[in-house]
Amino acid sequence: MTSLTESADKTVDKSFDDTTVTEAIEVEHTATVARENRETVGEQFVDTARMTCRDVDVYYSDKHAIKNVTLDIGHNEVIAMIGPSGCGKSTFLRCLNRMNDTIDGCRVSGTIEIDGQDIYHKSMDVVPLRAQVGMVFQKPNPFPKSIYENIAYGPRIHGLAQNKAELDEIVERSLERAGLWDEVKDRMEQPGTGLSGGQQQRLCIARTIAVSPEVILMDEPCSALDPIATAKVEELIDELREHYTIAIVTHSMQQAARVSQRTAYFHLGDLIEVGETNQIFTNPRHQLTEDYITGRFG
């Protein structure tokens, strides 16, 4: 009896040796980047860049508002910029169509290109630039004119329509893309300011679209809207991605998570981390990003 058991034990010992020599499994992991580190973490570059920003610095007089930011914005992507108040996200957004030119004492250095063209070059005319890179603001700001005129104004001054029929078509297409056509088609001559807040914001988006932009910048486009109007604008953003590149600044992290493919986190003028939205919200690599999005900031 014992002999049988012993021989069984021996075979087992052998098989035990076999299992122990199996290849060791490598598990890679990256440690979280410490709060003190202000180098950008993550994927700043994309394969198909619509806009490229290199070493961008912005000063308001003495204040260093944006510190050496390098970032690509890809074709047909929604990139969200998040961060606490005063982190520079809106300043950075405004650099992308030279809205900062209007601010006294504001200096921008580094290069920002759209489709390879330097937008801060001396020969660059800001009027067509701002058609190419449109902007939607926090509070809806329709012109005090009819709904039709709100949309038709841009194409008219940029000479995008040869005749009334073409202009009508641009107005209709823009309102359709902005998801507003069915709601306003029977009241085109009424003032744009008579629409609800959410409708006004979509009117402003339609107005931006009307001049055939490539990039649409949105600075907290939903902060003055109720949840239903917000949902409509967010749905619109997702649809617009098919034709345009969208950069959106938002205070709502849930909104950034919902609408964007990439997220950039700014902190005191530094671009701290940029990456796929999914990764940022499940496993951010920088401690500051994690502190902010989990509500541990300050």
Partner: peptide
């Protein structure tokens, strides 16, 4: 750590998400 190490023994030798630690391509 956020690394998913399930089913590693079944041949999935690299952890999903580990790729983002590679240096920038551009």
């Amino acid at each position: 750590r956020g690394t998913d190490m399930r089913h590693l023994e079944n041949g999935a030798k690299t952890v999903p998400g580990a790729a983002r630690n590679s240096p920038p391509k551009h």
